[in-house]
Write a protein that binds this DNA or RNA. Structure first.
Lengths: 206, 206, 206, 206
DNA sequence: GCCTAATCGAGACGGTACGTCGAGTCTTGTC
DNA sequence: GACAAGACTCGACGTACCGTCTCGATTAGGC
């Protein structure tokens, strides 16, 4: 989640040593992911059962388990598997434009209903199985926080932001606002959310 | 969730017409809630099965269903059933103190592990069953947003805050930051989170 | 079941000492029996749940239990509670006419679908709860067998039947044939069943 | 039920297409049937719950449902699943010997307590679910009645029995007597029941 | 005209079982 | 090896009855 710059090579989702036996059907991967996305978007994490995916795709359950050992792994693939197509925030000109771009990119990601569904399910899964958090979530979050901290250091050195600003707090605010609005809130996404949030983040309320 | 002032009398959770019929065992209510809280806190929403609660309390499953027709209803009771013990933000002196109090109160609520577990489960449940959101969540959120808007109007009229500040955006930021940090993030709650967030909210980063 | 002459006074189904408290609603008795008969006839013993009866009659379950402590008792009431309206076989003239009347009367009773339903349920109940058999069934069967034995003794003394005929075997044959045909068999009741059976009973197949 | 000659190959109870998929555990079949028989014999149809069978065998309920979709199907397997070990009545010499053998074979089957329990439960199930009767019972009964009719035709052509004898009535009498005596009656099976019944069937009472 | 007692409705309670679904895993035979 | 097929255990789901209970409100005697 919350991937920012995303220039890491990203392991091909269900990595396999290309060894001896019959090779995996590459179509299956995409079919499974597609079905999972559909189910997530339609009725959320609980509806994305391996059983349902299997029936939708004509694939059997073991075929799915061979690729993703857990619903959480599959959900994680959908939530954080791609990345890439995101504009590199760092290159954007101007502080406000950077923040806006960052928020917009986040909002763009989290607006997809399967994103919220996958992430809500992931949180539940992490509670049940804390080591999953360490495996799937923590590295991504750490990297994203570090990326933001780096950007902020640079901005601070240029005098663009107040030195007191805590990078983690900013991260919580920015990501939290978007995540909360898209996943939790009943309020529809207004046209100006991103700008409104950006305004407060930049100028405060005072 | 996100209850702010909380001066309504709050219906006794599983409301029943009194008089007719054998009265419900009031101990059962508390035992069930207590077991549910324990399970939520320990292993999250999935672990809070009616089955497990029944075994822990010695109560049978139908007895639980009689009170809460759904895991979501029970989780909602735990997340939002109480309220009350929360200081009325409006009375606090000074803008910064008000914001701080608001955030601290939120943080206090969401720090309880059963709170995050319940809310994550609720989000998943809402995805599966959208009408649950309307029943359980939307009214509370509307009220909380309205409460905040009222406070902001007053503050604005006193010139304490910039007129441009969007109440909903502020709500997303404040609640989102806390919710994100407690439910989603792997980062532990630092001593100064609340202050750090408050600082940005008040002064912006610029 | 299998009641033959039926001149015993038959206890009023749910006998109560007419003592102090509020008297039982006499309408309830009939409503319950009527509902039970309907359910039995329609979907058999399993469908005759106290719950369903209660809903049909507007009576509560405890009200039924006050009168019949068990489904078996209620079913027994329906199967064997009335009696009476049956012509006394003994008075009929001629051996063949007597046998015919006996079989016809049995057939008449067992043709009612609630009869078969009640009796099938009773058998199952007796298996679960053998003492119920002693309480509800055995006395009636003993009396019926004794009645038949008496008739046979008389007939034998008049030289109407062969001395070797075993009364119990005759009972098994006559009652069994009717019970089997009505309760167990898929074959519809033909016009001449009773005559056909009677013919074999009288003359044998040889 | 009431199977007579039984020379059909008898499908392996829970027929499955062989080959594909993990094969069923053949031990499970036998364990389930054995447990079911025990429960039936001990406390009748109601005691033969899938739950109890599951606990006795260590198998889970779905495993039983996979084989027998209904208590009725399982009971039917126990009542009518085997067959075979029954002497072919047709080959027996002499009319009386044939009838005796037929009755004795029936009595032998129905004496097993699980037989009565299964059949009583089946009757109740058929009432609840009439199409079950068509599926499980009617074919067997039709065949048995046809078999008997054939035997009678042959015997009649040899002048062994009176032409007037109705095959269905004889079937009702013979099977009914045995079924009634074993399932319904409180009278214990006497040494001579079969002979006594046979005597009446052959010679009548007159 | 109270007292006592049984009934009534309502509805909860501990049980037991139902039939189903999903999670992961395992076992075949085929590709 | 992967794959389709389909079994397996385990755990939970939500529902239905069972027979019993606790209430408050009737509705009768008996004193």
């Amino acid at each position: 989640m919350i991937a920012m710059t995303m220039d890491s090579p990203l392991t091909e989702s269900p990595t396999v040593a290309p060894g001896r036996g019959r090779p995996r059907d590459p179509e299956a991967d995409e079919n499974i992911l597609s079905a999972a996305r559909t189910l997530l978007a339609k009725n959320g994490f609980e509806a994305m059962s391996f059983e349902a995916i299997a029936q939708m795709t004509g694939v059997t359950r073991p075929t799915i388990y061979r690729r993703w050992p857990t619903k959480a792994h599959l959900a994680n693939e959908i939530a954080n598997g791609n990345g890439r197509d995101i504009p590199d925030v760092v290159e954007t000109e101007g502080l406000r434009a950077q923040i806006l771009a960052f928020l917009a990119q986040l909002m763009h990601q989290y607006e997809r209903p399967e994103m919220g569904a996958a992430n809500a399910g992931l949180i539940v899964s992490y509670q049940r199985n804390p080591e999953l958090r360490d495996e799937l979530h923590t590295p991504l979050e750490s990297k994203a926080r570090a990326d933001l901290a780096k950007i902020l250091r640079k901005a601070r050195s240029r005098g663009l932001i107040r030195p007191a600003v805590d990078p983690d707090a900013l991260f919580d605010i920015a990501v939290g606002a978007v995540v909360f609005r898209t996943m939790f809130s009943s309020l529809p996404r207004s046209e100006t959310v991103v700008e409104d949030i950006c305004d407060i983040v930049l100028n405060g309320i005072d």
